[in-house]
Design a binder for these strands. Structure first.
Lengths: 263, 263
DNA sequence: CGGGCAATGTTAATCTTTGTTCATCTTGGC
DNA sequence: GCCAAGATGAACAAAGATTAACATTGCCCG
């Protein structure tokens, strides 16, 4: 390989760093056919422009500033059931779709599965969903605005609603805090219920995700009924009697098969 | 897999932990091809920064659930000047005000100073500003929606603009990528310039923050002129000739006195 | 042709990181 | 409650990385 001028080599280093988590001086020296000293000088120059951060033995991408939003949440409850439901929901998604992802832990599991999606647009009021998908190459994330509630990753309020009105989507995925035995969809928060209602209006189709513990439970606000949704996905422990009743409302009921735990 | 320098390995560990509930020392050692002792030292370092919590045999994410948005940090250049400018800007803020905080590192410094604000409302398109203020008891944070650009903490686009239209504020704080010698305000990004323009419209008053290195520089998009702003704050190294010229445009020019570095 | 100049390679002293050993401590099974 | 398997951390040695200073190379231009 022909030697490169130093500036070309430096931008090459920077580009190759874009994919990897880090590079070693030795491997760069081998790759460019130069001595370790030269590579170190290149890295020093790049660091002076704060394009990379040097480490002992190599370099990594410049220190990222990390913005943290935190919330206390037991994401663990029924994690397996939620994962199974999310996997079933994932199968409804086709490349090119514009999706709405609601707040909630089940939709968050779905978001994780969408990371390898192709040409998707995800509209969401959830910082958690946005955080999950921010690095997904094939997914454009549109965060709806709203008020930040302390300790909660969800944006709500009039801003959220007005933002939502700007869109139309192919499919909305929503969680629920309770599914009444008559198929009513309940939310624990009034404002979230209002946002949910609006989501169903701007989406051509809607898919409700709820594990079996939600069935037969009610919560503060009724945001609608399963009859307004296209699909309802729950896990294998849901009582079949209720599911039959729901099916008569016109919604397509899907029972997610348990999946093997992650390695 | 080739060996990574230690710091790169540590940030990898941290990232991989973001998905899984926990990791074991043995699996990390195998994955990175290092000894258990090395992994333990990495985990100890990460725990010292309270990024993970160690357990017997491995580690898990730190107690709280953290949603991270990261971006390549812009240069720390002129941090002291920016802090001084932010401190001067802080003095314009009174309890009860509704503020707009623009994107940018200077406004981010201002956000940090607003954490002890009383009865404030902060409207911002910046995830960084929102992150900074999410725990401030006396500050309600309204995040404008928009498209999440990879590696950038700023939300932009039509959603941002439409959301902004819902508000009226007392005072907008804006940074700038360049201040022309005729007082023109320049932005490096066209969409950000458009958002800035709109901010000035919905705010009763506007304050431009720019350190002296920005003066005399131009950038892609002209978003307006200092004549449209109420106040312009810069640092002590700004050329007085330019400042006199700006003052003739009708803007109040404030020169921030240097502050002592943080402890 | 050759001086000047910047980039690169080399050497040697010094510092970091890593692996190993071993005594001690945790954890989970019984 | 006790024991065994395995995890931990201190200490030390070895491998390898870093830096500064100096030597060398290659190239531009008079």
């Amino acid at each position: 390989m022909r030697r490169l001028p130093s500036s070309a080599r430096q931008s090459q280093i920077r580009r190759s760093l874009a994919g990897r988590p880090g590079v070693t001086v030795a491997s760069l020296a081998r790759e460019f056919g130069v001595s370790g000293m030269t590579v170190r000088r290149d890295l020093a120059a790049l660091e002076a422009r704060s394009e990379v951060r040097r480490t002992h033995g190599g370099a990594m991408l410049a220190e990222r500033m990390i913005l943290e939003f935190d919330y206390r949440e037991r994401r663990e409850a029924n994690r397996e059931a939620k994962r199974a439901i999310a996997a079933a929901a994932r199968r409804l998604v086709r490349p090119g779709m514009r999706l709405i992802l609601d707040n909630g832990t089940t939709t968050l599991e779905l978001a994780a599965l969408l990371r390898d999606g192709r040409d998707l647009t995800v509209i969401t009021p959830s910082l958690a969903v946005a955080s999950e998908l921010q690095h997904a190459a094939g997914v454009e994330v549109i965060l709806l605005g709203g008020v930040i509630r302390r300790g909660s990753p969800d944006l709500t309020g009039p801003v959220t609603e007005r933002s939502l009105e700007l869109f139309s989507a192919d499919l909305a995925f929503q969680g629920a805090d309770g599914i009444g035995s008559d198929g009513s969809i309940y939310n624990a928060d009034l404002r979230l219920a209002q946002v949910d209602r609006l989501m169903r209006r701007v989406a051509r189709d809607c898919c409700i995700l709820a594990d079996h513990t939600k069935i037969g439970r009610t919560a503060l606000a009724r945001s609608g009924g399963l009859g307004n949704a296209g699909t309802f996905i729950t896990d294998a422990e849901a009582p079949t009697a209720a599911l039959r009743r729901f099916a008569r409302l016109g919604v397509k009921v899907v029972v997610a098969r348990p999946i093997s735990p992650l390695p």
